[in-house]
Design a protein around this nucleic acid. Structure first.
Lengths: 103, 103
DNA sequence: GTTATACTTAATCATATGCTTAACCAAAAT
DNA sequence: ATTTTGGTTAAGCATATGATTAAGTATAAC
């Protein structure tokens, strides 16, 4: 998941897909890069669960699956709040240990 | 930033640091890995702004900087809400185009 | 002063990643 | 039926990444 977002090209692709679905060649347009390269990035995104694709006729349509996005968001949020809780406890401890130093 | 979180070892290191600061060798303990390897991961984390370190005497102490974490959280959140806004607009459009199909 | 500790630096190496070109396939358009 | 379009597969290549070992440095302990 994070590995998928680690590449700038893939992040731009995700940003693009957040504005709506797109075909492979639409996705490829902004990049100065061969189609197979774009498809490879797409496979990484799909493998990470960030993007779902469906082929109808000869055109493959891609859309983001925000489920994966919110999973990553959740992970980050958990770590952050874990750290902030720690800071709170530390604050309590300091307040208890040296109450005359409190604000 | 995402690149720093892309590696499982580094994610574990971040998780560890969310419970409080640690020295390099404390950080290294859970891993079956040489010290230099751990230090290299640490440099990536520091370069990404996720971790700040300070050397006092001969021991380097590491702590997370949640600023970078919330930056990543923000990026993800922006994409997600962008997508969700789109879904809303789409819903409005459908409701307007075919009002008799509404719930 | 000598030894042990806590890293650091440097060199090296295997594998993974991102990209390319060339050849191919199937649906659309002409 | 032929060509074009949109995408896929395969092979190869350069660089990046994650790891290792070996040697060095500086602080702390004895």
């Amino acid at each position: 998941m994070f590995r998928a977002l680690a590449d700038p090209t893939r992040r731009v692709m995700v940003e693009r897909l957040c504005h709506g679905p797109a075909s492979v060649s639409e996705l490829a347009r902004p990049f100065d890069m061969s189609l197979p390269a774009v498809v490879q990035h797409l496979q990484v995104l799909e493998g990470s669960g960030l993007v779902r694709t469906r082929k109808v006729g000869r055109v493959r349509t891609c859309a983001i699956d925000t489920g994966a996005l919110s999973l990553a968001e959740k992970w980050i949020n958990e770590r952050r709040t874990s750290w902030e809780r720690r800071l709170d406890r530390l604050g309590d401890f300091l307040a208890e240990a040296e109450p005359d130093q409190g604000v």
